[in-house]
Design a protein around this nucleic acid. Sequence first.
DNA 1: CGCAATATTGAGGATACTCAATGAAGGTGG
DNA 2: CCACCTTCATTGAGTATCCTCAATATTGCG
Lengths: 241, 241
Amino acid sequence: MLPHGDLHCSDCHIRHRAVCSRCDEAELQRLEDVKFYRRYEAGQRIVWAGDELSFVGSVVSGIATMSQSMEDGRVQMVGLLLPSDFIGRPGRSTTPYDIVAASDVTLCCFRRAPFEQLLEDMPHVSGRFLEMTLDELDAAREWMMVLGRKTARERIASLLVSVARREANFSLVPITGDLRLHLPLTREAMSEYLGLTIETVSRQISQLSREGVIALDEKRRIIIPDLIRLEEETGENLVPA
Amino acid sequence: MLPHGDLHCSDCHIRHRAVCSRCDEAELQRLEDVKFYRRYEAGQRIVWAGDELSFVGSVVSGIATMSQSMEDGRVQMVGLLLPSDFIGRPGRSTTPYDIVAASDVTLCCFRRAPFEQLLEDMPHVSGRFLEMTLDELDAAREWMMVLGRKTARERIASLLVSVARREANFSLVPITGDLRLHLPLTREAMSEYLGLTIETVSRQISQLSREGVIALDEKRRIIIPDLIRLEEETGENLVPA
DNA sequence: CGCAATATTGAGGATACTCAATGAAGGTGG
DNA sequence: CCACCTTCATTGAGTATCCTCAATATTGCG
């Protein structure tokens, strides 16, 4: 594998989804000049809530979690950061969220000040950034529905479907036959995302597995024999009668 | 009161918080040329999920709710729209949310296409719009914590505190003594926001009232004798030991 | 004044939580 | 290379919080 410093933007596999997706070659060159990569191992924290975050950037590969905690230890995940997702908020030097690498993670980073300059100078960057932020907002609101109104079983299904959809979107693999999903989240991480306890997550996954809606492959890998069937379990009945 | 067509931006009381807040006088004039007002009565729907939304705009006065529904009737409110909040998404002609006037509401509107042009031409508008969107995202994530992890009692307290804070922020009234809060939401609307049932909302409000943490004034009006005390009930212990 | 909408309160029940024990997997060192 | 330990996952029993169903107040409005 190439050392990451040598990776060209034009070869980057998040090229067409990330904050840079609208840039032309000349613009990419400008990003290339100031970008740098950071790598984190699974389990490593990327930032701690309240800490200074000197950079912003995109997830290139791997999965990170973003969560909020209460003083008494309750934790709620507020975002699952997949490749092309953006970390950090321009104009603010700290994050209110803990960000942790769930798997090995590579980030494509910019120091904050230069990135803010890019936002000002390059409409292709700022426009895409705004669009991504609006998409994030929609996603957060959809997740409010999950947390506020769905049963444990529906929550599990919603999580799996949302990751499956993004994965399918990304690899452009048509969703036929078995879908083998890599979900590098512990039961604890899932429970934090879903607003449940570890035990409830475990029980519901066992249940879905017993019923054949999903199958458990090796660790952190789930097989979805029939995505439509799983989607029905989310409670969002997309199939009109 | 002036007919709304005559209201000058410079006299507008959301002038310093809304999407126009960074504009200078010349820029305001440009907004003034294309803006128009719309009024809705309490209970009236502003848009229905999936409907065409030909305009975008800011809440000038009143409160609106934004919610998402499932086919089986479950409803989750995903936003409470207070004065200066923005409605609609540039670049998209429909909303996925139902938006309903909870009280009489006045909106300051722009047709979508001209507004998108404004975003391109005026950095003061686009910059502020981005900032507001990022704030919304933070708020949505904070609400995920409420929905995912808080008890019924904490949820009620969180709702009241968040509205109280915004109100205090707006009127710049120092938070001393009794705080008289106007909250034009039915128990049903609150339950939809909080991910609870009407009955649970009612019981928890009765409970808080019995304990003197809040007092019920006339309809849709709540007295907060001690905001600090109420904040303690949100579960977010802001007071370090 | 009376009806419709909204709110309160009670009784019973279901879903998810807590506490606890057991099992499986992965890494470390003898 | 295997025993041991730690971490993670599963499963069970009992419980609590919130939901459902239902009856009764209260409010606002025609």
